[in-house]
Design a protein around this nucleic acid. Structure first.
Length: 171
DNA sequence: GCCAACGTTGGC
DNA sequence: GCCAACGTTGGC
């Protein structure tokens, strides 16, 4: 596993995380102690590899509501603790229990996420799809199910602009 | 509720 | 290693 400090790319990087608001919404994040939660339950290898290899403390994330009316980006969150083992994989009672994961070499990782700022105006998926500058953004691609997606710097700026957020975070 | 797209599993 | 079957995601 990558150790802290081994993630050498320029910081901060930008991401998009999906959550079904019926299970955990942007408001739920804001209402959490310290406006922070652990992002557990990731059981997809590509997303796991992002957590393990690329997501670092200080990275910023668009908090996206999937399976919602409407779907779209609700706010900006910050990674406040990077990759550590997701304990639910070892809990037989947990939905995300994975009996195949070795406690000495955990298969699944999580991180901690803190709400930073709500977008003054919610940016819907429809809005994103309608913006030609975002034509290559992963979340607008058909069939894109990855629950943690990298976001390019230009896309990040554009989404924040659309949501009415200017300033330092929009760099 | 429908169904397209995708990821995983398991037989061979 | 192939690929059909299955389960899940997620927009509509």
């Amino acid at each position: 596993m990558a150790k802290t400090g081994s993630k050498k790319r320029a910081r901060p990087r930008h991401w998009l995380v999906k959550s079904e608001p019926g299970a955990f919404s942007w408001q739920d994040l804001c209402d959490s102690p310290e406006r922070t939660t652990c992002w557990d339950g990731i059981r997809n290898y590509q997303a796991r590899n992002f957590i393990r290899d690329e997501i670092a403390a200080g990275d910023l994330m668009l908090f996206y509501h999937s399976v919602a009316k409407p779907t779209g980006v609700a706010g900006v969150a910050e990674v406040v603790r990077e990759a550590y083992p997701d304990p639910t994989q070892f809990d037989p009672a947990a939905k995300y229990h994975d009996p195949g994961s070795d406690p000495d070499d955990p298969r699944w990782l999580m991180f901690d996420l803190r709400a930073v700022e709500e977008l003054p105006s919610f940016v819907t998926l429809q809005d994103l799809k309608a913006n030609p500058k975002l034509g290559e953004m992963l979340v607008v691609q058909r069939g894109q199910r990855l629950s943690i997606q990298p976001v390019k710097a230009a896309e990040w700026r554009e989404v924040l602009r659309m949501g009415g957020l200017q300033g330092s975070m929009a760099r």
